[in-house]
Design a protein around this nucleic acid. Sequence first.
DNA 1: CTGAAAGCGCTTACAG
DNA 2: CTGAAAGCGCTTACAG
Lengths: 334, 334
Amino acid sequence: MKSIAPPAPAIGIKDVARAAGVAPATVSRALGKGPISEALRAQVMEAVRATGYRPNLAARRLRSQETGTIGLMVADIANPFFTGVARAVEHAAFEAGLRVILCDSDRDPAREASYLQLMQEERVTGLIMAPTRVTAQRLAGLALDVPTVLIDRAGPPGLFDSVLLDNGEAAAGLVDHLVAQGHTRITGLFGETSDTGRARAEGFASAMARHGLAPDARFIPATTPPTEAALAVLREDAAPGALLAANSLLLLGALRATRQAGLRVPRDLALCGFDNEPWTELVEPGLTVVEQPLEEIGRAAMRLLFDRLRDPDQPVRKLMLSGRQVVRGSTAAR
Amino acid sequence: MKSIAPPAPAIGIKDVARAAGVAPATVSRALGKGPISEALRAQVMEAVRATGYRPNLAARRLRSQETGTIGLMVADIANPFFTGVARAVEHAAFEAGLRVILCDSDRDPAREASYLQLMQEERVTGLIMAPTRVTAQRLAGLALDVPTVLIDRAGPPGLFDSVLLDNGEAAAGLVDHLVAQGHTRITGLFGETSDTGRARAEGFASAMARHGLAPDARFIPATTPPTEAALAVLREDAAPGALLAANSLLLLGALRATRQAGLRVPRDLALCGFDNEPWTELVEPGLTVVEQPLEEIGRAAMRLLFDRLRDPDQPVRKLMLSGRQVVRGSTAAR
DNA sequence: CTGAAAGCGCTTACAG
DNA sequence: CTGAAAGCGCTTACAG
């Protein structure tokens, strides 16, 4: 039995040129932006159709030295934050006629290094990346010769364009809201090894101070199960009246802890935190959260990248976007 | 002020060859798999290090006619189903030394067509794709000359390798479970325009018949808000004792409907459906669902693709994976 | 095992 | 506006 698919006839620009009765260069011009008469262009396009020609992007890239490709490196594509950003980046890229190579680092610095190497071999037009803390620090000494925009973490000061949530402002906003609801004993739960956690803790502390309250910030090691961490706090003698969880894992842990402790929200304890994930609306009562503008973060990253490509020498920019406070039942006045 | 980054020195294989005192071909062999003495290889590697050389993948691809690239086309990367599959595909690709180009079709046939064209111009090694129904039908006449594996939808019979959940079996399993809990009046909610919905409806109907029960299957148009659709059913005179929702949107709608109707789950109504999304565990009571093996779907798709590349003439395969039933409070016996 | 030469499929100065 | 020629940076027969 013969193979159905022949071993690829491989139609090239020369075949099209022959079919159209023109030079290969003319075909290239008809397909691209080169100067060409309308008559010849139509003639060429017809030949393209007749031959079923498809440009070979590898050849085009090698010759033109432009890849039209964006690298997108995230820590975990299954995380809704990165998924949302990735979606926006992909869409912006499509509209700009660019391809995106997806790199999921899995929060593994070795994978990040490997992918960084790949991005350079790909000669990507630009890179949008959410580095781990480890890689972010290494970035300074890496001599990355790819225009890069960092998301979620700014990296070494002054070296990379970046876009991130205004974490301090967002945490402060949550404090303001809790205080407005009559709370004074507020405990904040923050990721210990997270830059983002630090930034949120600072906003938390300064807002508490502004209200003349004592900030009770707890830094939770990544190794401690969030539910246990929250439970420990709730069982202290001077248990808080409100809990602010600095990321969705901690918020989920806090919620589970309230259930295990038999506390009613918001009656016994107010609860709020970060990231407007679907489940935060569906639990009863719904949880008050700060929503990150995922779409806008992705689009802004692309915008910064394009600006950088246009003018490589412009000053480095750090774009801070405001979160949106979504108030739900978990912080209702008692 | 001068630019910090010089206009790219562009170190090529010839520069490395000169530094190592060998021919360019030798450098190529040292970097690749060509036969070479250990001494020369070491010599070359040292020169590579010294010069900071990075291979140009566009050139390598053009010459070798191998791109080492996988196209991944999903309907919506923000959908947890596709996110999970994408993650698995990305990881499998990384391990195999392949890159993945992410294509989010946004369920838009025009975008799909555009991306399909791109994949061919990229000369991707293979394509893994979740087509819309429209594109799935067109696929037969498209003369796609890229090895392709379909996910989530099998497409034209016998044309493409595919991997999907055994939807009929999964729906039947849910029916069996409900019946075991004592239910007889079971209504199924299915997406009207969805192939997946059809397959689940068939499993639903045959399982009901097997139990000697009358199947009450409702096909909900995509234009009808899920909550309203479910509410309408719950307000009928002969309201069901159990609801089976064939996708997570319908399940969410059903949940909201029970709340709006003031029904208690599972006391007044049992509820179950598809996709083990985080919120299904967090609502009270937790919802009984069928979990799709996302990781395995992605890995299996890659496996089918590799097999196809190895042997292009082997028969087309349709791989059906079993879902996992996650039983929670929403279907507890009353 | 090693080198010199050809060529992958395009685009782009260079002439006309 | 059009064509002939060169060359992007590699890999791979082809000799030796």
